[in-house]
């Protein structure tokens, strides 16, 4: 994905991983998909962001009014609140590779080869 946004560039080659990560996972009840998503997220964060992350799990069935703030349509949705910019990842996070790309932890693999 795009790595050309100005912030990372000024930071040189310093990876996003240096910063603190604030993540929010939206679910609707304890559905299998939600549980899968949460366990997938925990695993990925432990692998890549150990000690530098915080996960908020928001159950929309309990707090439906929160769905408007982050424009939640799909369940489950993972929102990266920090570092900026905000990113949204939908699905049960079972495709680890895509999650890493989506969270900007790994550059996107272009069809022609590595960038």
């Amino acid at each position: 994905m795009k790595r050309s946004c100005p912030k990372p560039r000024t930071a040189g080659t310093l990876p996003q991983a240096e910063k603190f990560w604030e993540l929010r996972l939206y679910v609707a009840g304890q559905t299998p998909k939600s549980l899968t998503a949460l366990s997938n997220l925990r695993r990925i964060c432990d692998d890549h962001l150990k000690g530098r992350y915080h996960i908020d799990v928001i159950d929309l069935l309990a707090e439906p009014q929160l769905s408007r703030g982050d424009q939640i349509l799909a369940i489950p949705t993972l929102v990266r609140k920090l570092p900026q910019p905000v990113r949204k990842i939908i699905g049960d996070l079972s495709d680890t590779e895509r999650v890493l790309v989506g969270l900007d932890l790994r550059p996107a693999v272009k069809p022609g080869g590595r960038p």
Binding site: K33, A37, L60, Q71, L73, A74, I75, I90, G91, D95
Partner: peptide
């Protein structure tokens, strides 16, 4: 409801329960 494809990464199975919740509310 703001839907922007470039902001959305799909990483597996999902549903639109969020929309339902929102509409219901």
């Amino acid at each position: 409801v703001h839907v922007e494809r470039s902001e959305i990464h799909e990483t597996g199975d999902y549903d639109l329960e969020g929309l339902f919740v929102r509409l219901n509310l």
